[in-house]
Amino acid sequence: MSGNGNAAATAEENSPKMRVIRVGTRKSQLARIQTDSVVATLKASYPGLQFEIIAMSTTGDKILDTALSKIGEKSLFTKELEHALEKNEVDLVVHSLKDLPTVLPPGFTIGAICKRENPHDAVVFHPKFVGKTLETLPEKSVVGTSSLRRAAQLQRKFPHLEFRSIRGNLNTRLRKLDEQQEFSAIILATAGLQRMGWHNRVGQILHPEECMYAVGQGALGVEVRAKDQDILDLVGVLHDPETLLRCIAERAFLRHLEGGCSVPVAVHTAMKDGQLYLTGGVWSLDGSDSIQETMQATIHVPAQHEDGPEDDPQLVGITARNIPRGPQLAAQNLGISLANLLLSKGAKNILDVARQLNDAH
């Protein structure tokens, strides 16, 4: 009898209710805020589980004197976190989706994509230029951005401005803007500013005609071990179906173009009346040469937790077992079709030249 009692006690200790789920994140304040929001949602869904947040620095956090596009290494903000995932030191990792490459290392998958916040870019102005827009900034004003995508589009749109690289986390960039006289304004992701509670610093939100956004911008991705079915089931509740389908289309477009950090590629997606609209573009580094096109596809946005595919093969690095396969494939095909259209119009040449120029500098 006593033996059975011990077995029952052991089973209770090993039951999922007692389990601590370890969540990996970057150390920056924004990353911690984003991770806290994901953990809060998981806690609400699984009140019996405990969650421990483990923060670590990544290569991208450490190399702050070089433009991201020049470092010449993929997975700048993800490699150390993936290493911890691989060694079973954490069970899942919360990322900004735009930091996750469209091809993940073997053994990993994006197990959830959370509801997207505003994906557009924002302009934050130096205190002396508050009330201005990019259009009304004085001639030769210097605007800071760490992104080739932003610089290429904005140089084309605002030729009277000069664009220079600015690195560091959000706090560091804002301090550089406010305390030094080098920059009249800087460009940042609206979602990051909003998550930090800095709505009052948003001086201008850039519309798609001015600057399309990065693939996955404004959404959070939760990376897990691809074979860890328990954790895949656990994080599945975080999937937002519309965000998922938009981001599958965007990531398929980028992957098929073979774009990345070192080339200016941008997108804009919208879901309306059962249609998914995808606009994508590529630019030369100075913005003088560009190709942009829009395509659409009829896609039914499923309700969360309709029964999805059981075999769960990944699409552009994403596993969404609780979302039907048909809409996911339709979104992926839309991204591939748009990429093929741009490639047929000469996108590869623009991107190759951009890559060579970026590598040469």
Rank of each mutant, 00 (worst) to 15 (best):
L193G: 13
T109Q: 07
C247E: 05
L220H: 03
K140S: 13
D65Q: 07
V103N: 09
A297W: 12
L68C: 10
L177M: 12
L206S: 04
L285M: 13
P264K: 00
K345M: 14
T294N: 14
Q332M: 15
I299A: 11
K128P: 02
H126R: 09
W198H: 11
L276P: 03
P119I: 02
V353D: 14
P138T: 10
A84D: 08
Y46K: 10
N171E: 13
D228E: 15
I166R: 04
C261F: 05
L220I: 00
R225A: 03
V93M: 09
R167E: 01
I291V: 07
D91S: 09
R201M: 01
R116A: 08
R116P: 04
I291K: 13
H83W: 14
H239R: 03
S147W: 06
E310V: 11
T58F: 03
N171K: 12
L357S: 15
E73L: 06
D65Y: 10
L137Y: 05
L170K: 03
D178M: 12
L49R: 08
M212L: 12
L206T: 06
L351D: 14
N88E: 08
Q314E: 14
I350V: 14
R164K: 12
T243H: 11
D352K: 10
S290D: 06
T279N: 14
H126Q: 12
Y46A: 07
V265I: 08
A185T: 14
L137F: 07
G107Q: 13
A320R: 04
T109A: 07
S141N: 14
R175T: 08
T136G: 10
I336G: 03
T136L: 09
S344M: 06
T294F: 09
D99I: 00
I186Q: 12
A40L: 09
F51D: 07
K348L: 14
L85Y: 01
D273S: 04
E179H: 08
S45C: 15
Q194Y: 05
D352C: 02
F158L: 11
V130T: 09
A44P: 06
E89H: 09
P106W: 11
E139A: 13
V215L: 06
Y277R: 11
K115F: 11
T136E: 12
F108H: 00
A151F: 10
N169P: 02
Q204P: 07
E209I: 04
S165Y: 10
T243C: 01
D312P: 03
Q50V: 02
H268V: 14
L177W: 01
S288V: 12
S290L: 08
L97V: 12
A339S: 06
A55H: 12
R225K: 04
I186S: 06
I113A: 10
G107P: 02
L85C: 11
L238T: 02
K115D: 14
F163W: 13
D233Y: 08
F51M: 09
F253T: 04
V237Y: 04
P138V: 08
A185V: 10
I187R: 02
V124R: 03
E117H: 11
E223C: 15
T102M: 08
C114F: 08
L343M: 15
G346Y: 00
E86P: 01
G131I: 05
T66R: 09
R150T: 01
L234C: 11
A44K: 13
A151L: 12
F158Y: 14
L244R: 04
L64I: 10
S290V: 08
L232M: 11
E52L: 04
V215F: 04
L351I: 08
D178I: 02
L49P: 12
F51S: 06
T172E: 03
K176Q: 14
N88P: 07
K176A: 08
E139C: 14
I166H: 09
P105Y: 03
L100T: 07
L244W: 03
Y46G: 06
